[in-house]
Nucleic acid binder design. Structure first.
Lengths: 131, 131
DNA sequence: ATACTATATGATTGTATAATCATATAGAGG
DNA sequence: CCTCTATATGATTATACAATCATATAGTAT
């Protein structure tokens, strides 16, 4: 819960993209993988870094490990969380939110992610093809 | 003014110590050097990094360059600034504030810093010797 | 002009860390 | 039991960056 460690843990583009999604949702590794288009190992390491800094927590459900904001972090760093929420309004982050939204509105769940990558990606990108 | 660059620029212990002092003061390089007990080159590079991220600005006065918070940054990142102010209440940062206070209350100015290092340091540490 | 001061910056070294591939682990489901 | 899946982690490589020393620059003071 050290300030320097918190700020360092947040000082990476991919970890900020992850934080953007986890600020109001819980997602497992393979969902983050699909939505952010990063590989499994990479996502896992970024999540570990955020968890070690006390920013997020993990919870196992069946074979998946879901990550979400750590409540203690949230309450002790409210201003920072609100700041990030505001800054995440910019385009580089809202695209990811759109993809998360498309995923939530699709018929897919994390069960399908690896078996149906192509079809899922069609769904995730659908929102961008509307013009 | 990119979010990632701002967070990265803040993700260093010495730069946070500098920010702590610059949040409500303007200081030149040699003053920061003396108060934080870091060498000139090191302080200069950290200041450059913070300046490049748009967090602080510099202003020349005679032979000194004074650094202070960038007003645009301050207004566009108010929540972050307030968050930092709160977190700077912890001991690792308040010691530096004590040293800054001792310096302000001393007879010294940045003119004296290099010529009178020993005597100045006595002043800066005076506050800790009171027990 | 000369010496000195404040700051910046080139060059170097060591360390941290991001990305990636391959593999380990652990659990789920046939 | 065997296979498949989700995740973590060892090993490696490439890159970023902090610290430091030495030097450059630019301006002040004599």
């Amino acid at each position: 819960m050290d300030l320097v460690e918190i700020i360092k843990a947040l000082g990476d583009e991919n970890r900020l993209r992850i934080m953007n999604l986890l600020l109001d949702d819980k997602l497992c590794v393979c969902e983050l993988e699909a939505i952010l288009d990063l590989n499994q190992s990479n996502v896992s390491r970024h999540l570990t870094r955020l968890k070690n800094a006390g920013i997020i927590k993990s919870q196992k459900k069946a074979q998946w490990i879901f990550y979400g904001l750590n409540d203690k972090f949230k309450s002790e760093n409210e201003l920072l969380v609100n700041y990030l929420k505001n800054r995440f309004a910019s385009e580089e982050f809202t695209n990811d939110v759109s993809r998360l939204k498309a995923y939530r509105e699709s018929k897919f769940t994390c069960v399908d992610i690896r078996s149906n990558t192509q079809e899922l990606n069609k769904e995730l990108f659908r929102i961008f093809e509307e013009d």
